[in-house]
Amino acid sequence: MPEVIFPGPEGRLEGRYHPQKERNAPIAIVLHPHPQFGGTMNNKVVYNLHYAFHNLGFTVLRFNFRGVGRSQGEYDQGVGELSDAAAALDYLQSMNNSFKHCWVAGFSFGAWIGMQLLMRRPEITGFVSVSPPANMYDFSFLAPCPSSGLIINGDADRVAPPADTRALVTKLHEQKGITITHEEREGADHFFQDPHMEPMIATVSDYVKRRLTETTR
């Protein structure tokens, strides 16, 4: 999988780009957890999400937010990181201008950024949010949420308590025209440490596969 360097708002951004041979393959970006708490594009959840999408036929890009790894710039409270994600999507689309579907996936802080990106980019047709930190960040901008997607968390999550995630899902369920699928894994913590990683990724893969099948009928 080639390492890539592409332009971001504050200088270069470092990523991993995994293309398909098919020119019209669907595309996805995967967003990593909080930069100030050790989050990088090589986080285990992010890495596994990346390969799950690629195995489903997606051309996939994951990258380091500003100030992480070889990406230039400094942490910017989520504002600059959203701009980084938009630049990453621009880069991915420039390399794949005949894509059929565009998805965003994020873990923890990355889930929050991904949902904001969803609001700004109408071409995004689906999302996956793993362990969204609804207790730490305001998700009220999802009014209305423009796309159907999957929210998945663990019922033993002490970083982003399940009650807050359930409250977020309840609010999204009230919206018309979209379907929010919610999966809560019994015994799983915030990071889906083994033995919960594999079943979580399988749930994501099954969901994305079903959505793709529905749109090609």
Rank of each mutant, 00 (worst) to 15 (best):
P144W: 15
Q193S: 10
G15A: 09
T203A: 13
E186I: 15
F192K: 09
Q93V: 09
G149E: 04
S83G: 02
A87L: 04
D76W: 02
I124W: 14
E74G: 03
S140A: 13
Q175L: 03
Q193I: 15
R120P: 06
Y91R: 09
E123V: 06
V68A: 04
Y207D: 01
V104H: 01
W103V: 06
V104N: 09
M200C: 07
V204C: 06
H50N: 09
K100C: 05
N153V: 11
E3Y: 12
Y51P: 05
S131W: 04
G8P: 12
T59R: 10
F107E: 06
N153K: 08
H50P: 02
P33Q: 09
L82S: 03
D164S: 11
M95G: 00
D189L: 03
S108W: 10
K209H: 09
T170R: 08
T125L: 10
Q193P: 00
E14C: 05
G67V: 07
I27G: 02
G39I: 06
P144V: 13
G106T: 07
S147R: 15
A87Y: 10
L142E: 03
F127R: 11
F99T: 01
V159Q: 04
L212R: 01
K44Y: 14
V128E: 10
I5F: 15
T59C: 14
